[in-house]
Amino acid sequence: MKQLIPVINSNDHIYGNEKALIELVEYGDYQCPYCGLAYPIVKNIQQELGADLKFVFRNFPLSKVHPFAFAAAVATEAAALQNKFWEMHDIIFENQERLNIENIIVFAENIGLDLQQFKYNIQQKEQSVKVERDFESGLRSGVNRTPSFYINGNKYEGEWRESELLQYMQGLLIAAPETAQYAMLNNQ
């Protein structure tokens, strides 16, 4: 089974309970329509699982087919410097059909970023390097489509467009002893 490499670490943007029993990692592309479809599904999972879920989004922009995917990923990293990674993540997916360079600035304005700072940060190399590092970790983890999901470190190969992903994780929670052990090991 393909494994998440590296495991969740301090470079990741983590949403939810850091000590949650379930760790869901998505490798995604902001311009990928399937990732757009997955967005509300993941939101629903976050709501359903509450404190039992830790969610991480890693960038996997397919730049050759999605010309704005890389820029969008960089924008989220720049927003993260103002503690608004998830706000930027959300507004991009919620307006995916309007994603382009000009609108990234509009999004930044809408979520209340300091625009001058944001415009400076998106030009900095560090943000691109972070996105590329995510991409490379995806290659090593065996990402073979977007979105690709990893649950507690293992690649999830099943369907996700309906409620399969949620049901799978709910199943893990029922079998909680082993899962809990994993989470404990990982949080040491």
Partner: peptide, 10 residues
């Protein structure tokens, strides 16, 4: 039916 990804190649 399964895309092998790139981890093995790398």
């Amino acid at each position: 039916g399964i895309n092998p990804g790139a981890d093995g190649i790398l």
